[in-house]
Design a protein around this nucleic acid. Structure first.
Lengths: 91, 91
DNA sequence: TTGATATTTCCACAAATATCGAATCAAGGG
DNA sequence: CCCTTGATTCGATATTTGTGGAAATATCAA
């Protein structure tokens, strides 16, 4: 991982709702979670969460898949490992 | 480490100049680096770097010590390990 | 096609962050 | 005491980020 991407990932996780959302996606594992379920769980309006999910997606930390009407989000473990690896190597 | 502090640390590292400054402080080891030396190395005005060092300090990632006219900054390895540990446990 | 559901995009606005010159503060030397 | 050096704080400004209602998009079911 190069530093530009690491900065994006760090910034994506450096926010209360996003860190919590990511944590829950990690716990949810391969099944992932629908955007709506996540919004309700976090007590955040849909539009706000959508913004945060976009940030996490843009940082490469989560991925999106449409299933029927729902958009399922999943944590990208490899990206997370890449970030931790970067921190351990460089810092 | 609890999530509030993790968010502060993530946010502190999620910036080009701060990540680079922290990286250099880690490499510098126990000797640390003076604020001025760091500012010159990064090519950032003193006042700007001072702002960034304050952010890193507030997040607990670095510590400050006055030596004569200079303020020496050092990376706090324990804090960094705490952050990585938090990420590995929770995410 | 109409309607219901799931979610995103748009918009406007509030709040936080980044930048950097100038003024200020601390410490040491002559 | 005065001057220089090293660094922070202040102040003004530009940029980015976060928020949430309303409108738009997508999918499915009847």
């Amino acid at each position: 991982m190069k530093s530009g991407l690491a900065i994006k990932a760090l910034g994506a996780l450096a926010q209360e709702h996003r860190l919590e959302a990511f944590r829950r996606l990690v716990q949810a594992g391969a099944d992932g979670l629908a955007a709506g379920a996540l919004a309700e769980a976090l007590g955040v309006p849909n539009s706000s969460l959508s913004f945060h999910l976009a940030q996490l997606t843009h940082a490469g930390l989560i991925v999106q898949q449409r299933v029927g009407r729902s958009l399922i989000y999943r944590a990208d473990y490899a990206a997370m490992n890449g970030l931790v690896g970067y921190l351990m190597e460089n810092c």
